[in-house]
Amino acid sequence: MIRTNELRKDFTVRVKSGRFRREKRVVEAVAGVTLSIEPGEMVGYIGPNGAGKSTTLKMLTGVLTPSGGDVEVCGLRPVPQRTKLALNIGVVFGQRSQLWWDLPLHESFALLRHIYRVPAAEHAARLRRCRDLLDLDDFLDIPVRQLSLGQRMRGELTAALLHGPRVLFLDEPTIGLDVVSKQAVRSFLAELGATGDVTLVLTTHDLADIERLCERLVVIDHGRVVHDGTIDALHTRYGSRRSLVADLADPLPDGFVLPGATLVGVEADRHRVTFALDGVTAGVAVAGLVAAVSIRDLSVVEPDIEDVVARLYASTDAP
């Protein structure tokens, strides 16, 4: 569905050189990205600010012309076949709107039907599904400018899907949303992805979106792909560890060692301990701890993907 080979994008900028002069400098925003995304995949595409995420999306959607390399989306070349490509893709940018600001939401949807020349029956069926899953009915008659951010984002998602795109590009779709709105958007996208009808590419700084929605994670830094695989593979590659946290009835004995785990924290007068599970399962670690001390409560804490990604960024050197 999406194929890139050594995709590059350079920008020429002017920087100050001396008191009155400026000189041109070439900045490499995307430095040879090679990807292959199959139909129905849900892919998280993440990176720090300035890594090249949004630039890549703009080349995939035909907004920017690549400086080099090859790119195809839905079997089309995005820039020379931009108009045809627009009928096959949907785009949601968290900071930009494709809705008409002063019109009620339902009129924006009607206009989009005519712009994309969608048959009335198909449009009605897709809108009905979005209304049900995103709870749109309460604000369909309200002008877009009066909607809350969460309501508008649900409208944006609907607008991007009414023409039946084969690929949906999402750039920060949950930025600024409250917890309830985020959950509604994530649930909708999860159900959408489960059908396999739409290929989804998601860029975000909210890694909870990635964990909830995407099996595959592509990490870009300094314009280059530094990881392409599952989230579990990312945890394994960068030494992510689960933790066992236990509240003890008695203080932890001096010199206590839990085989296969590392003691990383002791609190509350040695009554609360945290072990990192290095080479042992949670069940074995719990059994070893129970055999040594009396336990009031315990929990297994999964690794935080934000910490893993931060370590990944720290390990990549600037070119």
Rank of each mutant, 00 (worst) to 15 (best):
T204G: 09
A233M: 12
D137V: 05
V71H: 07
L217K: 07
V27E: 10
A110E: 15
V226P: 07
V30H: 04
L57W: 01
T262Q: 14
Y313C: 10
Q98L: 02
S240G: 15
T83R: 15
L149H: 09
G94A: 06
D135S: 14
L76T: 10
K16T: 13
L298G: 04
M42E: 02
S17E: 15
N88L: 03
L289K: 03
D10T: 01
P251T: 13
V167D: 08
D269S: 14
G223M: 01
F256G: 00
Q95G: 02
V144Y: 08
R117G: 12
V91S: 11
F11G: 08
N49H: 08
G50S: 00
A276L: 12
I89A: 04
I231R: 14
D317Q: 10
F109P: 01
P78L: 10
V273I: 13
T236E: 15
T199E: 07
T12P: 03
V63S: 03
M59G: 10
L149I: 05
V226C: 04
G223D: 04
V264A: 11
V71A: 12
D228R: 02
T56M: 01
R117W: 02
G94Q: 06
K53H: 09
G260M: 05
H106D: 12
L85G: 10
E41G: 08
G150P: 05
A86M: 13
G40A: 08
S54N: 09
F139M: 02
A276R: 10
R152I: 06
L105P: 05
E41W: 04
I231Q: 12
P143G: 07
E6I: 00
P143H: 09
D304H: 14
E267Y: 08
M42Q: 07
E156F: 04
L277V: 04
R22D: 00
L147F: 01
S108T: 13
C214A: 15
E215M: 00
L263A: 12
F93R: 00
L202S: 04
V167L: 00
E122W: 03
V13L: 02
S148K: 08
D102P: 07
T56P: 04
D232Q: 15
T174S: 13
V63Q: 03
R237Y: 09
C74W: 13
N88C: 12
K24R: 15
F11K: 03
T204V: 06
F11H: 12
T262N: 11
D197A: 15
E107T: 11
P319F: 00
L248I: 06
G47L: 01
V43M: 06
S187C: 08
R22Y: 09
G62F: 08
D70R: 14
L213Y: 03
V280L: 11
N5T: 15
R272P: 02
R270C: 12
S54V: 02
V63E: 07
V33L: 13
T236R: 15
T12Y: 07
G47S: 01
L149T: 10
P303F: 05
L298E: 10
L147S: 02
K58F: 00
R25Q: 14
V273C: 04
T195N: 02
Q81M: 05
L149Y: 10
L277I: 00
P303T: 07
L7W: 07
T61S: 13
T12H: 06
S243V: 07
R117H: 11
P303S: 08
P253T: 11
L202I: 14
F109C: 04
R152G: 10
V30M: 01
V13N: 00
